[in-house]
Design a protein around this nucleic acid. Structure first.
Lengths: 214, 214
DNA sequence: AAATACCTACGCTTAAAGCCGTATTTTTTT
DNA sequence: AAAAAAATACGGCTTTAAGCGTAGGTATTT
């Protein structure tokens, strides 16, 4: 005598929720489905109705899926959250899993995969889309093979950042309370380390390596 | 005695297609629905089955919605194409409309809006999501108020581009077969026009204005 | 025909950047 | 405790960039 499974669909795309809801309602399993269009709506909903499973989009207005997941896990630690994302973005799934999600599906998953994920998380397991698994494995290899990244010191990064802002060495020296000659030297070292030839190349390097945002 | 409406759903997200298909099948209207997961699959499908209406995603692998729309309009000009996009990206909808789409919906539209769009295009009208209309109107105002953009000449842009690549004025002069002094002067003019102070600021300007890609 | 905008070019000056050193103090690693 | 790395600082020297003015040739617009 199973009770009805309580399912929350959280996604800002009404059409997506509507379709998914339809798919669930046309199954044999007993289930109760409620919807929310962002993280805040979900939290409001959970105040009066405790979900067993939450299918959670990530990119949403007002409160995104990552924040919502953190908050739900804090308030209702037994809830099973399944992330549903458009893209196999590595930042997303690592953040979502850290936040407490138990499964991560891409939206191009089949409905069958969604059902498999639900079964899995109810059994206390994790579940990932095949694409996600592939992506995780690729990243593991990538990180092993390319650990060096930027070997600039924090001081050098600080100076490079100010160079990108358009400051001269003299100005940087004044704002950091060090000699201009020291900044000259740092700049020289940065050019060497980044294999850049001049300021223009430095700025490009900084942007590529996310030391400076445009 | 209406014949069944022939509807094609083109989207690379299986779950989305599945849900939408379900919504259509649970209506009273007679309709025949077929699916494709990208533009190429759609074209293959249309060889043996002519659709009346195509609900077309834009971002898809192999052949995207814009190319697919162009090709479908070339081969079957009477087909009504409704674009379904995740985002109200202005480039997308202008390109889709130029390609021949008759309606443009966001995926957070309701199913009711989808039905309204279908009715509209069957009557030979266009149909836009309210958000799209809003975005179009905003852009019209924006373009009226900010027509000047970058007033760099093509020569100046060429030189700025090479500065961003890390070339010195001397190098640029050699590669353009002009005097270094001329390049000096161009650089000076570019600094003035862009209100930049030095090379670093120039590079940032170039990137922001898409003169140079990182 | 005149005005405008652009590309071209030169001279001059100062400031900044780039390239070669060395060296001391502090912090981190081993 | 010793070694390595980082941050600090200074000197000389060369090249490049930046700021200023001027001006001829050309193409386009008025």
């Amino acid at each position: 005598m199973n009770e009805a499974l309580k399912l929350a669909l959280v996604d800002d795309h009404d059409l997506f929720r509507e379709g998914l809801s339809f798919l669930f309602n046309n199954q044999n399993n007993k289930q109760e489905i409620k919807e929310a269009s962002n993280g805040q709506e979900l939290l409001d909903l959970l105040l009066t109705w405790q979900a067993d499973i939450i299918l959670m989009d990530i990119e949403m207005p007002i409160m995104n899926g990552i924040e919502a997941t953190r908050e739900v896990m804090k308030r209702y630690p037994d809830t099973k959250i399944i992330a549903l994302s458009m893209h196999a973005n590595e930042n997303y799934y690592s953040e979502m899993m850290v936040a407490g999600a138990k499964a991560f599906l891409l939206k191009n998953s089949s409905f069958e995969e969604v059902q498999q994920a639900i079964v899995a998380v109810l059994e206390g397991k994790n579940f990932f889309s095949p694409e996600i698994l592939e992506s995780i494995i690729k990243n593991l290899n990538r990180k092993k093979n390319h650990p060096p990244k930027t070997d600039l010191t924090s001081r050098e990064i600080e100076i490079l950042y100010n160079i990108c802002k358009g400051c001269s060495n003299q100005e940087i020296a004044e704002m950091l309370f060090i000699s201009k000659r020291t900044v000259d030297k740092h700049r020289e070292n940065i050019l060497l380390k980044t294999q850049s030839k001049n300021t223009a190349a430095l700025v490009i390097f900084a942007i590529k390596n996310r030391i400076f945002e445009v």
